[in-house]
Amino acid sequence: MKISAQQYAKSLYDLVADKPEKEVKVALKNFVALLGRNRELNKASEIINVFTALWNKEHGEVTAELISARELGPTAREIVTNYLKERTGAKKITLNEEIDQKLIGGFVLRYESKVLDGSLKTSLEDLKNKISN
């Protein structure tokens, strides 16, 4: 049976979790050798993605993407961070900020499989849909 990227990532996590650096190095070496032997090195990027998600979940870390029309100030950032902490119960929040002027105003926040869309662009589109229907 083929081993899925999820299964690889899960076993990798079990291997390296709470281990000293030396052991991790050996484990990683063996893991890559296994991937090579199974001819599944092409799954590497997917495994890394899943592994990151798994690691974040276990350690209470949330990576969120914050897209805004203009550069955000520290207060806005803090509000978002607090909101995420409250919603997810995470201890550490990593915000990846991005500027996208197409949004016109407001922001879009993405985390896990959720989206909080407060952009002016979407509001206008919704308004357009409501009026045209």
Partner: peptide
């Protein structure tokens, strides 16, 4: 007040013959 609500979203992994596979959408 502009109403914004949190939405559960996913991404289309695959579309074929009227069927779509979607990742995410946990809820």
């Amino acid at each position: 007040k502009a109403e914004i609500s949190e939405k559960s979203v996913g991404k289309v992994l695959k579309v074929s013959d009227g069927i779509a596979l979607i990742s995410g959408l946990a809820e």
